[in-house]
Design a protein around this nucleic acid. Structure first.
Lengths: 146, 146
DNA sequence: CGGAATCCACAAGGATACTG
DNA sequence: CAGTATCCTTGTGGATTCCG
């Protein structure tokens, strides 16, 4: 195939055009500069997705999240929750009791983020085998060459 | 379920169940261990999405990508392309000419990844304003408190 | 031209200890 | 309980140089 990908890829330019984004040289500049980056960062973040996924089952307290999200440190949980709260994806409600009780929950905005993320997760699940095969092939080819 | 988010979030558990993933404590363990992580990592990666997006317009040579993806270093481009190639998302064809010519293109698999990613990008574009508002509010509240 | 190798700066993140 | 503060190790990525 010399010129175009065999599967017609929908969307990149159309999407950009619909949102008034100048598509110069593969729309790289547009994505890099905008806040789109920060959203993608959060998705790529090891913990954010896990936290969001956990909260999709209902509100949780700090300690519940700490034990629910496997392997996260207290520090990282705090930092991530602050980020998510700052973006309005997660709400934080402090109950003025002693000992302190803080509940975290998905906001409406946070809930709308989940489906696109899950679509991505589903893609990953569906193509795990294919990807694994590619990697194995790539690695053994490398081993043979190296 | 006694306490649910106001918007009903579709999917997390159903998705897991469909793929035979044990959902213990918010499906955190499942996601953390599988190769789903590596896919999300690539999406969160600053450059991968940009490269994929650029290649959606058709094959490109190394140098074209280097200049097309704004701000990327030679090293990072090489590293990212290797990753993408290893996963079978991008193809690499070397033309035995001098000076060397190497073309990179989206594979069929790579093309199928784009729509989910674009869905996410679209979400980001649609909610940029809302997020910005949340951040501003959060920051000014912090400033007032601090 | 398309890389690979080396060096280095800085940021991310874990562990631990302390506090309201 | 729900954090904050500090330390310290590791990873990440840019700049530079060299090579087929």
């Amino acid at each position: 195939m010399t010129t175009t990908p065999s599967t017609d890829v929908p969307g990149v330019r159309e999407l950009a055009a619909r949102h008034g984004i100048p598509v110069d040289r593969g729309c790289a500049a547009a994505e890099a500069t905008s806040e789109v980056r920060s959203v993608l960062d959060r998705v790529g973040d090891k913990w954010s997705v896990l936290i969001l996924g956990t909260l999709s089952g209902g509100p949780q307290r700090f300690t519940e999240l700490l034990h629910g999200v496997d392997g996260i440190s207290q520090r990282m949980l705090t930092l991530n929750l602050r980020q998510l709260e700052r973006d309005g994806l997660v709400s934080r409600t402090v109950h003025p009791v002693v000992p302190p009780r803080v509940d975290y929950a998905l906001t409406d905005l946070g809930a709308t983020l989940l489906p696109p993320v899950l679509a991505l997760v589903e893609w990953a699940l569906e193509n795990t085998g294919t990807i694994r095969n590619h990697r194995d092939g790539f690695d053994s080819r490398r081993a043979a060459a190296g």
